[in-house]
């Protein structure tokens, strides 16, 4: 177990320095839009695609957690206290994975365009939401960060946000009004994608792993299914889905990556029993579950069906 004290302190410190919990530079993480075809189709609007950087950060987090996993409960555990303060960028270079996750963000953005949704993207205004500080009970740190983010967005006249992951959606929609006094209109991309078509059977049957925040905190599990229905993609739900969905273990990976792995394995076993292709819709669930078998992000499946 990594002591919460060190975990919280280093997250807090890193967010203060760089705006994200890993302490990486933004130019290193947020690169998905570089060379993006859709760039010319988005312009100046008050609706902004707000990724919250979670997809982009996840490959780095995963790499770090790999180390934490190896050191947990060994004499090296204490050494890692100094790790997050060092220039991690050198240590962590998940090149291939970063490309994969950037690709997911691009596919989501492309699907939004395909769906006829007007929005802009401003990399300099795309910030990490601060969710980890909130989860860890560091309200002071979270409040400070959320005020900073909200102010930046307000300054540039952003009124509506399109989010792409469950944690950022929850934090921006439910917590920012309270902690940052910021009333943005927050829509998750799954809530607004609408291809206005009824497609034929795509010949795939999915089993969906609903993220806890979609299933319970935001109660928007029906949205992904609505989109799949419109694309003619079938799905087979298990008991633990929607409101009863089960956790991938991700949220505790900074405290006990070993426990995270066990939780994820349990969940993967359960999902794989249907024999269907498994899809999730959260970067954290994705990296945790795919350690045990093939998993796709639902945006990849949607993009594939739309562009088939």
């Amino acid at each position: 177990m990594y002591h919460p004290h060190y975990v919280i302190r280093s997250i807090e410190q890193n967010i203060k320095n760089t705006g994200n919990p890993l302490g990486l530079s933004r130019s290193q993480i947020n690169t998905w839009w570089e060379g993006w075809e859709g760039w010319k189709k988005v312009g100046e609007k008050d609706t902004m695609l707000f990724t919250g950087l979670l997809y982009q950060l996840t490959p780095y987090v995963d790499k770090l957690v790999d180390y934490l996993y190896k050191f947990e409960n060994t004499f090296l555990e204490k050494v890692t206290r100094f790790m997050p303060k060092s220039p991690l960028g050198i240590l962590l270079k998940p090149q291939k994975e970063a490309e994969h996750f950037n690709g997911i963000v691009r596919k989501i953005a492309d699907s939004l365009i395909k769906s006829g949704i007007d929005f802009c993207y401003k990399p300099e205004l795309d910030f990490y939401s601060g969710v980890l500080l909130y989860d860890m009970g560091d309200d002071e740190g979270f409040t400070e960060h959320s005020l900073f983010v909200a102010e930046k967005l307000r300054e540039k006249g952003i009124k509506k946000l399109i989010t792409i992951d469950p944690h950022t959606t929850y934090v921006l929609r439910e917590l920012y009004p309270e902690y940052a006094n910021a009333e943005f209109e927050v829509k998750n991309y799954l809530e607004i994608l609408d291809f206005k078509s009824k497609k034929e059977n795509e010949n795939i049957t999915l089993t969906l792993h609903d993220p806890c925040y979609y299933g319970r905190y935001l109660e928007i599990s029906d949205e992904s299914r609505r989109i799949l229905d419109s694309l003619g993609i079938e799905y087979k739900d298990i008991r633990n889905s929607g409101k009863l969905t089960s956790c991938c273990g991700g949220p505790i990976e900074s405290i006990s990556p070993k426990l995270t792995k066990e939780v994820a394995e349990n969940r993967y076993d359960e999902l794989s029993k249907t024999g269907c292709e498994i899809a999730t819709m959260c970067p954290i669930c994705l990296v945790n579950l795919r350690k045990f078998g093939e998993i796709k992000d639902i945006s990849e499946i949607i993009w594939g069906a739309v562009n088939a």
Partner: peptide, 10 residues
């Protein structure tokens, strides 16, 4: 700190 706050309990 070992809870994932997943909310299933609630």
């Amino acid at each position: 700190f070992l809870s994932s706050l997943c909310g299933k309990c609630k």
